[in-house]
Computed example of a mutant assay.
Amino acid sequence: MTDMFLEKFRALVPKYLEDEWQEEDGLTPAELDDALADHSFTIPLVLREFYLAIGGCEDLMEAYHYFWDPEELEVDDEGFLMFLEDEDEQFTWGFRTADLSIPDPIVWRRNNARGQWKSEEGTFSEFVFDMFEWAFNDDED
């Protein structure tokens, strides 16, 4: 299988942490498979490569928002696979389970107080790169 996103996600380490990517920044395929073994769903390719690239890098996994560890992933009652939450637990991000076979599906955001899901109108890779740009923007411009 060709890695579509792996190197781009690995490049987040030097870009935002000013350090070279190290193997411990990501999860090994065996670690990821073990963490996902109890789930009844398969995660999209982009999320798999995200975990392989930076799933062990707390500075990125917990940069303002909190990406869920693979074993914590869950599907809600409305059919969304949830993977991210903001620090105040006001919003949760996920994918529609009907889209899990798409390599880079559209991200949806739930307002936790209302329980309403709304499309972010961008794929996971677009969302992640935009989110880290925003989170690490130090207003030097």
Results as ranks from 00 to 15, higher is better:
Leu45Cys: 15
Val46Lys: 03
Leu47Gln: 09
Leu47Ala: 11
Arg48Ser: 12
Arg48Pro: 14
Arg48Gly: 09
Arg48His: 13
Arg48Ala: 10
Arg48Cys: 12
Glu49Cys: 14
Glu49Thr: 06
Glu49Lys: 14
Phe50Ser: 08
Phe50Leu: 12
Phe50Trp: 14
Tyr51Asp: 10
Tyr51Lys: 09
Tyr51Met: 11
Leu52Met: 09
Leu52Val: 10
Ala53Met: 08
Ala53Leu: 09
Gly55Gln: 02
Gly55Lys: 02
Gly55His: 04
Gly55Glu: 04
Gly55Asn: 04
Gly56Ala: 13
Gly56Glu: 11
Glu58Asp: 14
Glu58Met: 13
Glu58Arg: 12
Asp59Cys: 08
Asp59Tyr: 02
Leu60Gly: 07
Leu60His: 08
Leu60Phe: 04
Leu60Cys: 10
Met61Gly: 03
Glu62Lys: 06
Glu62Ser: 07
Ala63Gly: 05
Tyr64Val: 06
Tyr64Glu: 09
His65Gly: 00
His65Thr: 00
Tyr66Glu: 08
Tyr66Cys: 06
Trp68Cys: 10
Trp68Tyr: 09
Trp68Val: 08
Trp68Met: 10
Asp69His: 11
Asp69Val: 10
Pro70Ile: 11
Pro70Gln: 09
Pro70Ser: 09
Pro70Cys: 10
Glu71Lys: 05
Glu71Thr: 00
Glu71Asn: 05
Glu71Pro: 04
Glu72Leu: 14
Glu72Val: 15
Glu72Asp: 15
Glu74Leu: 12
Glu74Asp: 13
Val75Arg: 09
Val75Gly: 05
Asp76Gly: 11
Asp76Tyr: 03
Asp76Asn: 14
Asp77Ile: 14
Asp77Cys: 15
Asp77Val: 15
Glu78Ile: 10
Gly79Ala: 05
Gly79Met: 10
Phe80Val: 05
Leu81Arg: 04
Leu81Trp: 09
Met82Pro: 07
Met82Ala: 12
Met82Ile: 15
Phe83Arg: 13
Phe83Lys: 15
Phe83Met: 13
Phe83Asn: 12
Phe83Asp: 12
Phe83Tyr: 12
Leu84Asn: 01
Leu84Cys: 09
Leu84Gly: 00
Leu84Arg: 01
Leu84Trp: 01
Glu85Trp: 00
Glu85Pro: 00
Glu85Phe: 00
Asp86Leu: 01
Asp86Val: 00
Glu87Val: 06
Asp88Ser: 03
Asp88Ile: 06
Glu89Met: 08
Thr92Asp: 04
Thr92Val: 03
Thr92Gly: 00
